[in-house]
Simulated scan of single mutants.
Amino acid sequence: MNELRYLPLRAGTNIPAVRNWPGLASADPAVLERWREEFPRCNWGVLTGHGIGVLDIDTKGDAYGFGGFDSLIRITELLSLDLSNLPLVETYSGAHLYFAYEGSLPSKVPWLPHLDVKADGGHQVAGPGTIRDGDHGERTYRLTRGSLNEIPLAPKALLTAIRGWRVPALSSGSAGGGTAVELPKVDWLREHGFRLGQRDNGFNALVWKLTRTHYPHMDLVHRISYEVWLQTDNPPGDPFPWAKVEQQIERAKNSIGPEIETQLNWAKRIGGDHE
């Protein structure tokens, strides 16, 4: 079992406090104590790679679902995985699952919606004890299951999927053609909608982003889009009918759906072979 190596992070963040952190990360208590004095109130990161990986589950930015937990449930069901023996750290907005592996394993950010893989060349905010600042104040990470001194090997099917499967990264731009638009946060759009001149490209970008995030739950895509449409400028002389948004949703589903279904079928084949 490889020994965990740590690096200092800026207080309240996940940003390394030292340059060349991949080469400087250490398990030496004397080095860690020196950093503790040099960087008061620093957080700590774990160097990933060298046989240590982390599934980083997040729920930020997914006000309508369970974020990375939904992705984790889907992948464990598709591949018939049992991850109950992996050490679990509760974080500010999700969880970290630690696992061991042999050979090389790429980091993938993201790997699945709201679910990152931190492995070769990466680092992960350490727990327990780390403090993160957030919308509702500080929260301390805590180990809720297992031991970080005894990290078990990940199931072979999980490692195979990480090495070969990646859902395309989400984009706030206009994936379906037209002029790209920088989307505000969905919660903001639910309250304010789009203004005149933003509606066509704005809804196009929004429904593609929602479809990539929530497919196959298209009822959720429709509900969120409808909430935004209700707050959107829609004067009698320049209407933007709901039917037009529905057409954009249908185009996004027809384009993105087969792509994701192909990935899901690929994962199912892995699940059938993992024994």
Rank of each mutant, 00 (worst) to 15 (best):
W188G: 10
I162R: 12
G94M: 01
R74M: 11
P239E: 01
S174L: 03
T179W: 01
V18P: 06
D233L: 07
E250D: 15
P239L: 00
Q263A: 06
L230H: 14
A25E: 04
I162A: 11
P110E: 04
Q248G: 07
A17Q: 05
I73G: 15
R166A: 13
P29M: 00
V109A: 09
L55S: 11
L79N: 13
G146K: 04
A205D: 00
G103R: 06
T59G: 14
G127L: 00
L196D: 11
A161Y: 05
E37N: 11
W208P: 14
E33W: 02
I131W: 11
H217T: 12
L24M: 02
V109G: 09
V46W: 04
G12F: 00
I249C: 11
I151C: 10
Y98L: 04
H114Y: 06
R10Y: 03
D116F: 06
R195H: 02
R223I: 13
L4H: 10
L32H: 01
G12A: 02
I73P: 15
K209D: 02
D116G: 07
D187P: 12
L105E: 00
R36W: 01
F240H: 12
Y98Q: 03
V228Q: 12
T140C: 07
E191V: 13
G68V: 04
W266M: 11
R212T: 03
V54Q: 03
A100I: 06
I75D: 15
